[in-house]
Simulated scan of single mutants.
Amino acid sequence: MKRILLIEDDEELAELTAAGLSDHGFDVEWTSNGHEGLNKARSVQPDAIIVDRMLPGLDGLGIIRALRNEEIQTPVLVLSGLSKVEDRVRGLRSGGDDYLTKPFALIELVARIEALLRRPADTRQTSLQVGALELDLIERTAKRNDREIDLLPREFRLLEYMMRRSEQLLTREMLLRDVWHYNFVPDTNLLNVHMGRLRHKVDRPGETPMIYNIRGAGFILRETAGRTAVAPMRALSH
């Protein structure tokens, strides 16, 4: 059972959140004070932390900065009523791994925590690069060489997932589970529609293709054209 440390001074919200997380199989420890929360983060060694931005004693960003200065890399999700872009950027640049604005749906909070817990320990990056393709995880921007790529939020998450796993075959099941958080494979062309839009944006006419469809298997993001990943080139389509 994964242990979650919840640092939230709104008692009613904390009780509802803790109960919901417990229903999804998490062991939740709750505190309402910033200083106490920081001490618990050090001592109980949670698998993930959910911290309110505004707290008595020590605010959420202060807690995160203190942990990162001590090289404690526990994944942290920031909860806040502040929803402006600059507020989200400040939360992430302070060392937070994710940022969720209030009010929020419990199912989304659970999905985000599950995603944080699936990440390898060495993925605390602010940017990703695969060949000419670059992704800024803070500003949420993408470009290929000097060309800006305008991505919708779901497209950004899909591309981030693929870039973290470049040269790997990504099945439909993996993509629907980890990007859409489905626990089953729905009978829908949802993935094909999004992937088609993403490929159109990433691979423009005249550019070397980077996203390939392995027919009947899944998709691959490749840094270099012409390399064989898991199937012969005749099985690839673009």
Rank of each mutant, 00 (worst) to 15 (best):
K84R: 15
V85F: 03
G25N: 06
L38Y: 11
L92K: 08
N39S: 14
L58H: 01
P103S: 12
D98P: 08
G57Q: 07
G81H: 05
G37A: 11
K102C: 13
P56D: 02
R68C: 01
H24R: 15
S80D: 00
I63R: 02
V85N: 02
I64P: 05
G37F: 09
V89W: 01
F26P: 00
D59N: 15
E29H: 14
D23W: 10
L82V: 11
G95Y: 00
P56L: 12
V78Q: 04
L38Q: 03
G60I: 01
K102T: 14
L77I: 15
T101I: 11
D59R: 07
S22L: 08
T101H: 09
Q45E: 06
Y99N: 01
S80L: 04
K40N: 03
R93I: 00
L79I: 10
D47C: 05
L61W: 05
L55C: 06
F104A: 06
S32A: 15
P46W: 08
E36A: 14
E70Y: 07
L82H: 10
D98M: 13
V76R: 02
V89I: 15
S32F: 13
S32C: 13
E70F: 09
R53S: 07
D52A: 15
S43Q: 15
L21E: 11
R88T: 11
V51F: 00
L67I: 02
D47F: 07
G37W: 04
L58N: 03
D97V: 04
R88K: 15
T31Q: 08
Y99K: 04
L67K: 06
E70D: 15
P46V: 04
D97P: 02
Q45S: 05
P46H: 04
R90T: 11
G91F: 00
P103Q: 13
S94M: 03
S80C: 09
V85T: 10
E29F: 14
K84M: 14
G81F: 11
R65T: 08
I63G: 02
S43D: 13
T74M: 01
R90F: 01
E86N: 05
K40H: 06
G37K: 09
V28K: 09
G96R: 01
V89A: 02
V44R: 06
H35R: 14
T101A: 09
L61M: 12
G95R: 05
S43L: 15
G62W: 00
P56W: 07
E86W: 06
T101Q: 08
L58V: 00
I72S: 03
D47G: 03
V89N: 03
V76K: 00
R68G: 01
V85S: 09
S22A: 14
D27E: 13
K84E: 14
G34L: 07
